[in-house]
Design a protein around this nucleic acid. Structure first.
Length: 482
RNA sequence: GGCGCCAUGGUGUAAUUGGUUAACACGUCGCCCUCUCAAGGCGAAGAGUUCGGGUUCGAUCCCCGAUGGCGCUACCA
């Protein structure tokens, strides 16, 4: 790294879709890198493809970044508002003899490309406009003939760069075509706008997806032509779906926000993402859970692996439960409340009771959704009985009848504590000659609607005597097979 | 097709950078615990490092080749 110069990095998504997991990880790595080395993290929106870009997508990207907790120091900058910079850069390139006007139309190019492919030749631009004399070109241009600007790639030799993760990468110039810098409508292509901006924003490190490796030489060529100092390139391997093909909607959620909607805790997602394609190394090889601060302290480019990584939902789910379990109830509350809002559920319990209920339930939570679904019965009376749970533990009419009878024991009991409720139930079971377990399991379903719950007597005291009695009395009316 | 990159159990990653019984985590399976389900505890299966050659006393690690996967191959980014 360049000593004495604090790093400047950027995340530069194009708003043609929501923030997807690959982009999110690239953003995360950039952010981590900047934070680790006291650098600057810049957000730049590459919206020069007017056809496909939209403002809604910009908002979606920002939302995704905020959700995983990535804050940027500069921007967001929009390339669509910086067009002057690109035309100026193109002019500099033309003046220096590194670029030229091309009058070929899109249709002509397509046709020639098709012909070349059919003839088995590489479908590269044949450089015919490169031969047009400068004055002639200027004339045709001022006469109003539409033209694009192409970069004049050197005829021989090769172009390469030292990638911080892949090492030396070299391409023969013969493989690089004279790519378009400025379209005939004056809008720059990606190739031009990236280098113009990366230069203008004085970026020191370009950390981006490995899918950009192949067009990096096009940028290197421009740096050289402009006499500019090259940044350090660090390409990050891609994230694949379980079938090892590029992650796409086919594999389920691809948008980061979808994971929020699925009940994933942002810190868990971030932690999971950080370890996809990066490792803190031997010193921490036995750890998986890293706080944001720890990641900021540990991250470095040389921990990035070279091979693509498969996105594993199971592992993400594991991170999620780890985080939920580790959270204090008041830290978890806002997340749970958001889930409730989404589910249009309005808990009918006082604040402090809600907190202790969260503490009671979180060891069994894998997902924020649990609080809006399976755990509803704890927070209010608006809940449903899980049919599978009913068939499992309440299909016996005798058990149901006993539970109704048991309700009266609790109604008249002197006290209602964890110990006393257990004592009452076990005594009752013995008296009736049934196994306590049968009653306990049945009561669990009657009280919570679920077959899964914390210890029954903890549940009872958490619910309170009034609810327990009422729900047990209603046991007979619970729908399901008897 | 051309060019580039990559290759450690099913998945994510380690391996003092040539010397280990190839480690950890997720997942899977079994047992214990038990009022359910998780968790937890204990244990197991699962890779000889894609394959084939080399270099070396010795290769996961270096070299060559093959195979496979991925990426790029636009007046998209």
């Amino acid at each position: 790294m360049n000593p004495g110069k604090s790093p400047r990095v950027r995340f530069a998504p194009s708003p043609t879709g929501y923030l997807h997991v690959g982009g999110a990880r690239t953003a995360l790595f950039n952010w981590l890198f900047a934070r680790r080395f006291g650098g600057t993290f810049i957000l730049r929106i590459e919206d020069t493809d007017f056809e496909r870009s939209s403002e809604a997508m910009v908002e979606g990207i920002l939302e995704g970044m905020r959700w995983i907790g990535l804050d940027w120091d500069e921007g967001p900058f929009f390339q669509s508002r910086r067009l002057d910079l690109y035309t100026q850069t193109a002019e500099r390139l033309i003046a220096g003899g590194h670029a030229y006007y091309c009058f070929c139309t899109k249709e002509e190019l397509e046709q020639r490309r098709a012909e070349a492919t059919a003839a088995g030749r590489p479908p590269m631009y044949d450089r015919r406009c490169r031969k047009i004399a400068r004055e002639t070109a200027a004339q045709r241009r001022s006469a109003g003939e539409p033209c694009a600007v192409r970069f004049a790639v050197p005829e021989g030799g090769s172009t390469g760069f030292d990638d911080a993760v892949f090492g030396r990468v070299e391409f023969s110039n013969a493989e690089i075509e004279d790519f378009v810098l400025l379209r005939s409508d004056g809008i720059p292509t990606y190739h031009l706008s990236v280098v113009a901006d990366d230069l203008d924003m004085e970026l020191t490190h370009i950390i981006r997806g490995a899918d950009h490796i192949s067009n990096t030489p096009k940028q290197v060529l421009q740096y050289a032509a402009l006499g500019a100092e090259m940044p350090v390139f660090a390409h990050v391997p891609l994230i694949l779906g379980p079938d090892k093909t590029r992650l796409s909607k086919r594999h389920g959620a691809t948008s980061v926000i979808a994971y929020k909607d699925m009940g994933i805790v942002p810190e868990a997602f971030r932690n999971f993402l950080a370890l996809l394609g990066w490792s803190p190394g031997t010193a921490h090889k036995d750890r998986e859970i890293f706080s944001s601060d720890e990641l900021k302290q540990l991250f470095s480019l040389d921990g990035i692996s070279k091979s693509n990584a498969v996105f594993d939902n199971d592992k993400l789910a594991w991170f999620n439960t780890e985080y939920i379990r580790a959270y204090s109830s008041d830290k978890l509350l806002p997340l749970v409340e958001e889930e409730w809002r989404r589910a249009e559920f309005h808990p009918a319990r006082p604040h402090d009771e809600i907190l202790s209920l969260i503490d009671l339930l979180k060891p069994r939570a894998r997902n924020l959704k649990d609080f809006g679904g399976p755990f509803r019965a704890y927070f209010g009376d608006d809940f449903e009985y899980d049919p599978a749970a009913v068939t499992k533990f309440l299909k016996d009419a005798a058990v149901r009848a006993l539970l109704v009878e048991l309700a009266e024991r609790y109604y008249t009991a002197a006290e209602f504590t964890e110990a006393s409720t257990e004592q009452v139930l076990r005594g009752f079971a013995e008296e009736k000659g049934v196994k306590a377990g049968a009653l306990i399991n049945g009561a669990r379903v009657a009280l919570t609607g679920q077959a899964v719950a914390p210890s029954l007597f903890a549940v009872m005291t958490a619910l309170g005597r009034e609810r327990v009695v009422r729900r047990l009395r209603d046991t007979g009316g619970i729908p399901g097979d008897v």
